[in-house]
Amino acid sequence: MSVIIQGSQLRTVLLGTRVEKATGTLAAETKTLFNITGGKVLITSIVGEVTTSVTVANSYKLQANPTTGATGDLVAATDIGTTDTPAGTLLGFDGIEASSIQQSPGVVPTLMRPIVVNTGTIEHVSAGTDGAITWVLTYIPLDDGATVTAA
Rank of each mutant, 00 (worst) to 15 (best):
D79Q: 03
D84A: 12
T78V: 04
T119K: 05
G7E: 14
V107W: 00
Q63I: 06
G39Q: 09
T78D: 11
G128E: 03
L111T: 00
G120F: 03
V19R: 03
A64Y: 05
T110R: 01
G24N: 07
V50G: 04
Y60R: 06
G7L: 13
A22Y: 06
T32A: 15
T67P: 05
N58D: 15
I46Y: 02
S45N: 12
Q102D: 13
A98P: 02
A98N: 04
T37G: 14
T83V: 07
Q102V: 14
V54Y: 03
N58R: 09
D73A: 07
T32R: 11
V56Y: 04
V117A: 04
N58Q: 09
T89D: 01
G128P: 00
R11D: 15
V107D: 06
G81A: 10
E29M: 11
E97K: 10
T110V: 13
A98T: 01
I96W: 12
L74A: 06
G95F: 02
A87Y: 11
T82Y: 09
E20W: 13
S126A: 12
D94V: 14
G72N: 08
L74N: 01
A57N: 11
A27Q: 10
F93G: 02
G7Q: 14
K61P: 02
A27M: 12
A132V: 01
G39N: 08
Q103Y: 13
H124V: 00
S99T: 03
T121K: 11
P109S: 09
V41W: 01
K61H: 13
F93E: 00
H124P: 00
L62M: 09
H124M: 07
V54A: 08
S99H: 05
P114R: 03
V50E: 06
T78R: 07
Q103K: 14
N35K: 13
S53A: 15
V41I: 15
L26M: 10
G69Q: 06
S59E: 11
L26P: 04
I46E: 01
G128R: 02
V19F: 04
